[in-house]
Design a protein around this nucleic acid. Sequence first.
DNA 1: GATAATTTATACTGAATGGTATATAAAGTG
DNA 2: CACTTTATATACCATTCAGTATAAATTATC
Lengths: 200, 200
Amino acid sequence: MVQKKKGRPRKFDRDAALEAAMLVFWEKGYDAASLDDLTAAMSINRPSLYGTYGDKAALFREAMRAYGDTYGKSAIEAFLGGTTPHQAVEGFLKTLITNNTQEAPSPRGCMMANCGPTVCETMEDVATELQNGLAETEQLICGRFDAFRQQGFLPEDFPSVARATMLADMMYGLAFRARTGTCRQDMLYQLSDRVGAILN
Amino acid sequence: MVQKKKGRPRKFDRDAALEAAMLVFWEKGYDAASLDDLTAAMSINRPSLYGTYGDKAALFREAMRAYGDTYGKSAIEAFLGGTTPHQAVEGFLKTLITNNTQEAPSPRGCMMANCGPTVCETMEDVATELQNGLAETEQLICGRFDAFRQQGFLPEDFPSVARATMLADMMYGLAFRARTGTCRQDMLYQLSDRVGAILN
DNA sequence: GATAATTTATACTGAATGGTATATAAAGTG
DNA sequence: CACTTTATATACCATTCAGTATAAATTATC
């Protein structure tokens, strides 16, 4: 049952403001994103930010999770939604390339791959979450490979674990390339080679 | 000929201080590395830093170049020094894993892969340098693959470009893994799979 | 309508930031 | 030895930083 809260109701959409914060962190990284940057993008004031999310670090962690639940999720969903290994791998990589090279307001690259690692030495819990997220992704990929193999789509000796690892490596390679300026077309050009490398 | 400079001689070793700055940037990233952090690690004072390197951004760019000329170079040198494809690829990946998981004072991961991308959206020249550095690395790898092929070490239809790309992707995958806490042993465990993926 | 609870808005705080002015020290040059 | 040049050391600057105190506003409950 939905219980109405007592005090003055929040004036802004919590998730929409979080998404706006995510875009700021994604563009500038954790340290260069000032509270003025954040509150301006979120269209809220500082006490609202602190009251709703905690502090800057907590907001960053939530923003990372929000990124994982949207952009991050879309690639693995495309993979799991594929009905053939080729479709799965191609869908995964294509989604990554698309996400990494979207126009404004999205910055280039991947928030988790490009902005997460910088703070790992000072925010150990972020490091752990990123590591766990990668492990989870690889497990999902590996499990799906195994299912494909059992369905006869892949040879009996298909090395699911190694290929899942390789696909993850490509994810970080693509993120770096996009962040440093490689355009979508150039990455799509290599797509079939990458798919082939994973499946052959 | 070595011409002595006129004024008071510099009291510190320019390269050693640059290396100290590099370690700070590597650990904290560009924005979180304060001038107090930097000058303390370099054992110099602010005017010396500004007089010698310019400003914080210029110091960062030099530190990135210094990283590339030492840590970055060592991996590609190991590759080029290999006398067989297997030796080259394994040496490349092994050097990366070693560099990415060194003990103190080295932070985890790779400065260029983990700390460079964060600032790409605000320092476009850094983005360009990172992109060029990657392109150069891939060309060197590709060229060596071609030479191996002509020597008969690799099949006639070996896809040098695609495999060079894949090897670069692994570089970024390893950097992410190391930065987020994967230990050396775990990455060495996957080594033979990665070598096989590149060469088979 | 009074009260309690919660959010908002503005203004503020002490600390930290990147960068510099000023003065002193140490070298070469005439 | 005077002069020029360069580097060092300290102290300083205006700005920006993350975070908060205070008071007004808006809701539910009694």
